[in-house]
Design a protein around this nucleic acid. Structure first.
Lengths: 213, 213
DNA sequence: GTCTATACTCTGATAGAC
DNA sequence: GTCTATCAGAGTATAGAC
C-alpha cells in the first residue's frame, strides 16, 4: 500500500518535466504535506513550506501556480488512493477475514502515512469544501456498494447483524484515530513509541468478537 | 451533561461584569466557537468572528484582549468539563454497564456539543501546543487511574481481557468521530439526519460483545 | 531556475470621536 | 460601549536581475 508519486505520463498541453523539476516538486509537496496536515489550508503559510523545503518563497511559486495549487496537488494525490483499501474488500472472500483485513489495511495507512490522514481530517473538519464532490459521489457510491456486500453476509448468517454503515464508520474512526490523535496518544503513553503499538491486536480482538454471529 | 457558562464569582483584581458584558462575551464566544472549531486557531480570523457575532472587530477586542484570549477562554471552558465523563467511571459500579455508560456520555457530548469536540480535534491535529500540559498531566493521570480500574475488573474476570489503554482510546475514537467527521457522515448518509443516528445501538452492541468474557 | 525586491491584500490591534 | 479610521506586520503573489 503506497501513496503514488506523480506519474511520468506526458499530458498533452503540459510540458514534460525535467528530473530536477520533478525532484523539486516532490520536495515541495513533502514539505507542504507537513504544514498543511498540521495547520490546515488557511493556517498554513508559504513561508513555513519554503523554509521546510529549503527553497525561497518565489521559487515555490515557480513550481506551483499558487498556494492552492500545492494543496490541490496533495489532495489529488491522496484521494487517488484513499478508496483502495475499501475497494479491495472482496465480496467472494471469507467475510470476517475480509473485514479484519480491511481494518488492517487502514491501520497500516495510519502507521505509514499519518500526515495524509491528518490532511484528510483537516479537510473534513473544515466541512470538506474542496473534496465535497469526491465524498458525495465516489466515496458515497463505494460505501453503498460495500454496505450491500456486508448486508448480504449478514443475511446469510456469515457475520453478526449490525448496521453496515456504522460498521464501516467504526473502522474509519478506530484506525484513523491513531494518526489524527497521535499527538495525544504520544503524550499519554510516551512520545517515543509508535502510536499504533498494540492496536492491531486490540482491533483484531474487537472485530472478531463483534462479527461472530 | 453540559458545558458550563462563565461563573458569576467575582475574581479579586478583575472587575465585576455587567449583564450586557456577560451577554456579549457569550455571543462572541459562541461565534468564535463556530470559527475556531472549523478553521483552527491560525485559520480563523477576527473578521469572521465579528461578522458571525454581529459586532465590529474593535468591539470584539473591547471584550477580549486578543484573538488568543478568545481562543484561550474557549479552551479553558472546554477542558474544565472534558474529563468529567471518564471521571464518572465508578470503580464500584457494574463493570460492563459502567464502560457502556461512559461510552454513552461521550456519545452524548458528540451529539450535543460537536463544535467543542472539533475545537479539541483541531488542537490535537496541530500537535496540542496550547493544551500539552493538560494532556500530559490531568488527562494522563486520569487515564492511568481508570486503566487500573479496568485492569482490576479484568483480573477479577468481570470483563474480557483487552489492553485498557486501547479500550479507552477506542471509546474516544468511536464517539468523537461522529462530531469530528460529521460533515463526511452527512454527505454519505444524508445531511438532514443526526449523524449519531443509530450509533448508540451499534456501539452498545459492540462493547457488550467485546467485554463479555 | 533561483534569487532580491516589491506590490498589494489581509489581519490583528489601536486611537479617538461619539 | 460602540463605531470609523487607521497602523504595523504578515501573507500571497509578481517583476525582473542574474
Amino acid at each position: 500500500m503506497s501513496v503514488p508519486h506523480e506519474s511520468n505520463a506526458e499530458i498533452p498541453g503540459k510540458p514534460r518535466r525535467t528530473r530536477i523539476q520533478k525532484r523539486n516538486r516532490q520536495i515541495i509537496l513533502d514539505a507542504a504535506l507537513d504544514v498543511f496536515s498540521t495547520h490546515g489550508f488557511r493556517g498554513a503559510t508559504l513561508d513555513q513550506i519554503a523554509a521546510k523545503a529549503g527553497l525561497s518563497k518565489p521559487n515555490l511559486l515557480y513550481y506551483f501556480d499558487s498556494k492552492e495549487a500545492i494543496h490541490r496537488a496533495l489532495l489529488t494525490r491522496l484521494l487517488d488512493t484513499w478508496l483502495d483499501p475499501l475497494r479491495a474488500l472482496d465480496p467472494n472472500g471469507t467475510p470476517e477475514a475480509e473485514i479484519i483485513a480491511y481494518m488492517r489495511r487502514k491501520l497500516d495507512l495510519s502507521r505509514d502515512y499519518p500526515r495524509e490522514s491528518r490532511l484528510f481530517a483537516n479537510e473534513i473538519l473544515q466541512g470538506a469544501p474542496r473534496i465535497e464532490d469526491f465524498i458525495r459521489h465516489d466515496l458515497r457510491a463505494l460505501v453503498e456498494e460495500k454496505a450491500q456486500v456486508l448486508t448480504g453476509w449478514m443475511d446469510r448468517g456469515c457475520i453478526a447483524r449490525v448496521d453496515p454503515h456504522h460498521l464501516i464508520f467504526s473502522i474509519w474512526a478506530l484506525t484513523q484515530h491513531y494518526a489524527d490523535f497521535a499527538a495525544q496518544i504520544g503524550m499519554i503513553r510516551g512520545d517515543a513509541q509508535d502510536p499504533t503499538e498494540g492496536a492491531d491486536l486490540f482491533l483484531t480482538q474487537l472485530y472478531a468478537k463483534l462479527l461472530t454471529p
